[in-house]
């Protein structure tokens, strides 16, 4: 109860800022429309049947890309984590690709793949798979050597070791990686949508800005804020629910 009251107190600066903006701000301002005008702008978008399709497009793009990134990142992470030789051979290529800001490959992807779903998913997944892969590698390297010795004395094959020893022990790291990848995939999804201007909340924002519809821009900004907060909170809840049932905590080995 106390925690809830404290959390409510923490809203104070935000509430004051919005209140001051609403009551002291210029009602007709072209650049800083007061918060009360934001909702009507969004309501207009909903009435024009553009808001929910856009939200849906953005959400499904994030979901699809994050799923692809998690799969690729986890598999690559397991391979690189369990085969040190492979890790050395790929180190420079991966180190370089990781330093590349992911959005610069959007123009390249557009040239190669056109304005397609494949293009969007590959760009976003390229940005989001790094934290998954790196955390999986870290998860593998945290497994105690003794565990591998046990596997060897049981004459497990590489594949058995992977599926029975490594896989269960690295799931918590995988989840941590996905949690870090989630906000990154939201960002790159918005960049892709703004860049292509085809569909999604990102393209709505850029269109609103080009039409100098400030109320709509701020309304969509608020929507994206809620969206980011909601996604992060939802995934943290999911992660906790999975880990509560997990026999091995990330550190126990």
């Amino acid at each position: 109860m106390l925690a809830l009251a404290n959390a409510a107190k923490g809203f104070l600066p935000l509430v004051i800022a919005i209140g001051v903006w609403q009551y002291a701000g210029d009602k007709e301002s072209a650049l800083f429309p007061p918060p009360a005008t934001w909702w009507p702008a969004i309501a207009d978008l909903i009435a024009a049947d553009t808001f929910f399709p856009a939200l849906n497009a953005t959400l499904s793009l994030i979901g699809l890309s994050l799923a692809a990134a998690s799969l690729v990142g986890f598999v690559l992470g397991l391979v690189i984590g369990t085969l040190p030789g492979f890790r050395h051979w790929t180190s420079l290529v991966l180190e370089y690709l990781r330093a590349l800001p992911p959005p610069v490959i959007i123009p390249l992807a557009v040239l190669l793949l056109g304005y397609t779903m494949t293009m969007k998913v590959s760009v976003i997944a390229f940005a989001a798979f790094w934290p998954v892969m790196l955390n999986t590698i870290a998860g593998v390297s945290q497994i105690h050597n003794l565990t591998f010795d046990v596997a060897r004395s049981l004459r497990m094959t590489w594949f058995e070791t992977l599926s029975k020893v490594v896989l269960p022990a690295t799931i918590p790291s995988l989840l941590l990686g996905i949690r870090i990848a989630l906000p990154q995939s939201v960002v790159v999804t918005l960049v892709v949508e703004m860049f292509t201007g085809e569909s999604g909340i990102g393209s709505l924002m850029i269109a609103a800005q080009r039409n100098f519809n400030a109320a709509e821009v701020f309304g969509l900004l608020a929507v994206m804020g809620l969206f980011g907060y909601g996604l992060t909170a939802a995934f943290s809840g999911l992660e906790r629910a999975i880990l509560r049932r997990w026999p091995l905590s990330a550190s126990a080995s």
Binding site: L14, L220, G228, Y229
Partner: peptide, 18 residues
């Protein structure tokens, strides 16, 4: 803190149109 926790997950690129 709550205000900061609410503002922090705002995707940075959403600021570009603003």
């Amino acid at each position: 803190m709550t205000s900061i926790e609410v503002l922090r997950p705002l995707p940075p690129v959403a600021l570009i149109p603003v």
